[in-house]
Amino acid sequence: MAEQSTITFIITRQDNPESAPYEETFHVPYRKNMNVISGLMEIRQNPVNAKGEKTAPVYWDMSCLEEVCGACSMVINGTARQSCATLVDQLEQPIRLEPMSTFPVVRDLIVDRERMFDALKQVKAWIPIDGTYDLGPGPRMPEKKRQWAYELSKCMSCGVCLEACPNVNDKSNFIGPAALSQARLFNAHPTGEMNASERLNGLMEDGGIDGCSNAQNCVQVCPKGIPLTTSIAAMNRATNIQAFKNFFGSDNAH
């Protein structure tokens, strides 16, 4: 790699949410062990495109730089992933960067992932413990279960699973795999379990779990390796049982 002094980025840019997208090419000096973000940082330092014209620096979202926050997702050479964890040496050139197409673009590579947070609200992906008095300590969680649940809790709402899912698009109202798995996480928690049916009913609302048609791209692309399709199948079983309880009535329908 010694001779390779520059790397080329072809970036799909968009000046504001309403304007039309366009491509711009940049040459960036090569350094060893670069990730995609360090390339974008070079462009920010010297925002001159391949034609030698001065241009506005490329905007992108980032925070933790260690694949924990989920902010820096983008489509890199055709597949959605974290730009912090994607190494330049492992990519084919030129490197094409696009914003994720499932979400509305704010500017350049920044997208608005608000729909993911709306989805978490739909399935009530939290544990309600606020009250007017101290409820005391909750039930304990077995260590083995905690380790299992930890894997599900790694979800960082990065949106890569939604981008890869053929059923998440502007024609469908499907909320996507991430929130379905979060419902499973909170239903597995000993305190969260007390509100399990509320999350299951959220999953059964329009755009919920029935939007999944098992293409299973989500589990392949998840940067955190979350067993999303196992979560979906588990929630399929749970929502079906809940639906029967709702319909016929049951002592355990709550």
């Binding site: 055709g78 597949t79 024609k171 098992n214 791209n217």
Partner: peptide, 14 residues
């Protein structure tokens, strides 16, 4: 309502 993407994500289940 599906947007097929086997070209980008060519996994068996897709």
């Amino acid at each position: 309502v599906a947007k097929n993407n086997t070209r980008k994500y060519g996994y068996f289940r897709n």
